[in-house]
Amino acid sequence: MIPAPFTYQRASSVDEALELAARAGEDAKFLAGGHSLMPLMKLRLAVPETLIDIGRLGELSYVRADDGHIAVGALTTHDDIARSDLLASELPLLAHAASQIGDPQVRHCGTIGGSLAHSDPAADLPAVAVALGATFVARGRRSGTREIAAGDFFLSLFETVLEPGELLTEIRIPKPQSAGWSFQKFAKRGIDWAIVGVAVQGPNVALVNMGSTPIRARGVEQALAAGSGPREAAAHAAEGTSASDDLNGPRAYREHLARVLVGRALAEAASRG
């Protein structure tokens, strides 16, 4: 299948990307790795009029230690994240989760910024970013540069607080206070999206695919803060979630999975803490 016709433009700098986006208007989309967008376009579920290719903006592909946080450029691929020595030692949750995305071909193309901006609640990195308490840096011609907390970023399926023409440029992740981490991804097959996933970093617990956005498992976090053990805390995993019935099972099953996986994640995180 073939995407509907569109105009392709390639940006050679962030400024140019923003300029092109402003000119193209509402029906423009940024194209990073394209592995979320292109399949939708081929099925003609997405029909942008203009694609602005930001894939060559080397200035946005990096992992570096900054003051008290790790900065990851929005165009860093999943594969580069998974292989980053710095992340392996400082943010193993992120490096490990990136290594679990899709398949090698997808990881070679897909980028962290693309995945976050696409806002698919079944994707792994949004929940990981939430669990890590990340801050996103965005740039727009009107809005200038602004910082958005991961927890405020995702609005619903395919919808974020980014304005049209606004570009996600960097993900800033504070150095975790507590070393214990775990990423539990439950899927039928290796290549599948998670039926349910759990990201744990210290006291933070976030869920993949349990609602229209990544969800912070507040009930679990509060129980942990109040001194509950992992098993007891995990019983709260489905609170505040809104999983839907789908091909992979009814809502009740996914709520059950959330409890099981949170239990396992907390146990694993504790063993690493």
Binding site: F186, K188, I195, N248, G249, P250, Y253, H256
Partner: peptide, 8 residues
């Protein structure tokens, strides 16, 4: 025998 069926 999907996970959901076996779990059910």
């Amino acid at each position: 025998l999907t996970p959901a069926r076996v779990w059910a």
